[in-house]
Design a protein around this nucleic acid. Structure first.
Lengths: 280, 280
DNA sequence: GCCTTGATGTCGCGT
DNA sequence: ACGCGACGTCAAGGC
């Protein structure tokens, strides 16, 4: 990591440094006073204020105000970036082709410029208990959802979208499970309804529809019963514990999806889960 | 704006500086090598790498990798932040109470620390052509949507949600308009269907359902016709031009919603639009 | 490329 | 606080 700091550079100096930094895929931070204009999917204009502009290695551009989580203006990684410095100020223009979007940031004061080269970050980001992992666990251990339930397919593609879990209950009735890792809203109910409708129409059989979530809004629950669907409460904490036990127990790897490094797809997409334990 | 830069500070120095910066609501940037752990709504762990940590005035925490739009880990503004520096490293812990979330970032190398005090940013952020503005324009000038259409209500609350525009067509038939600023997908069609169904059931009258959007996916269009609903293409560019003309023409203010500064709610929420011009 | 879904989504508004 | 919908959502995965 090589860091270079320019304090109160001239606009020309700043522009030159930025150009080099962009060409060499460095990370640049501009601290100063600016305005911004955006045109593309929407149109916005931002008055003058003190901000933080970050240009990343891949050309992502983030303009941050002194407060708040989200950038006030930005450009995703696919953008082409220009920096122009003249007597009037430092202009940074980031253009994206598809969709066509232009972000222009105009600094009339640059307090500081930081250039960072050679940042190395190959590390794996592991996320536990995303929906994917919950789905895999419940596919392997469907009794956590309901006694006697047998799951035959995960992420089953249907015309309408994707069914999280599909299977058969103890009485031989088909079951569609829609999974949410957060409180279920009306939207989730509607999503489930869609899949159930598809099956009713396509196969002539009305399957049970189960919405599995840690909690559900009262409105959603009401709608659910109106539509003849079911709610099954799940405990993320309990599922997480179960995943952890499995990993310790040396069963199959439940590593969670890594954004970098080895993926943990255990490749049993079409596998049938024949044995149903009654260990609950 | 006061900026202070510490190059390769000791962990203790860095922690002290950060504590001060947090207490005084400054903006701080840490450049260095770190790992991170998060636990709360989800759980994640991030291996060692070179990153950018930003702590804002309101206590927002953003941990950015050298690439990509979104932070790899973060904490929104409501968090309480601790900084501890010892021989092993610099630890930053950001805790949020509701929901309970903890983010810990552990730097084993600090390349640079930047502290920025007194950032001033009161500027207004103006966004043109969000859905709200389009809705207001079309409510005022419904002939842009269809000749003879009369809009009686905006954002009409019904059991199912909110109808963007509600009115009556030239033949006296009720019309429900669902508006999308972006390409309409199947979801939008389903949303519209819901409202139409509500009206059919509740009032015993089947209204026309119009999906107004700049474009529509082929699947969504197919579904739309199956359901007996209509698609009306709108041109954002044209609408934008119209808004601009109105503003220039000195009609009512169409300022777009400002996140800071004066809001532009022209307060005609329940207003009826009696006159229908046939100027199209 | 289009389409669909998930997300620690975030944000803003209304009740 | 919850509920709900928009977002320049972003990002990933299928086709």
């Amino acid at each position: 990591m090589r860091v270079k700091v320019l304090g109160k550079p001239s606009f020309q100096e700043a522009a030159e440094a930025l150009k080099r930094s962009i060409a060499e895929h460095m990370v640049a931070i501009v601290v100063g006073r600016c305005t911004a204009r955006y045109q593309g999917r929407s149109t916005s204009s931002l008055g003058e204020g003190d901000r933080l502009l970050i240009i990343k290695e891949d050309g992502s551009v983030l303009l941050h105000r002194p407060s708040g989580y989200s950038p006030v203006n930005w450009q995703p990684s696919t953008s082409i970036i220009e920096a122009i410095g003249d007597s009037e100020g430092l202009r940074i223009k980031a253009v994206r082709s598809r969709p066509r979007e232009i972000l222009e940031v105009h600094f009339n004061h640059v307090e500081m410029l930081v250039l960072i080269g050679g940042m190395v970050d190959d590390a794996e980001f592991i996320e536990y208990m995303d929906e994917h992992l919950i789905r895999d666990l419940l596919a392997e251990e469907p009794w956590l959802l309901e006694k006697g339930l047998r799951i035959t397919e995960k992420e089953k593609a249907v015309r309408n979208g994707y069914i999280d879990l599909y299977g058969v209950d103890s009485k031989g009735k088909p079951v569609i499970v829609e999974l949410k890792r957060v409180r279920a809203s009306r939207e989730a109910v509607i999503q489930l309804k869609r899949y159930v409708d598809y099956f009713s129409g396509e196969l002539g059989v009305k399957p049970r529809g189960i919405l599995a979530a840690p909690s559900i809004s009262s409105d959603a629950l009401r709608l659910l019963s109106t539509l003849g669907l079911e709610y099954k409460k799940i405990s993320l904490r309990r599922l997480y514990k179960r995943v952890w036990e499995r990993r310790k127990g040396g069963l199959e790897a439940y590593e969670g999806k890594g954004t970098t490094g080895a993926a943990a797809d255990n490749g049993n997409k079409g596998r049938k889960y024949s044995e149903e334990k009654r260990g609950g």
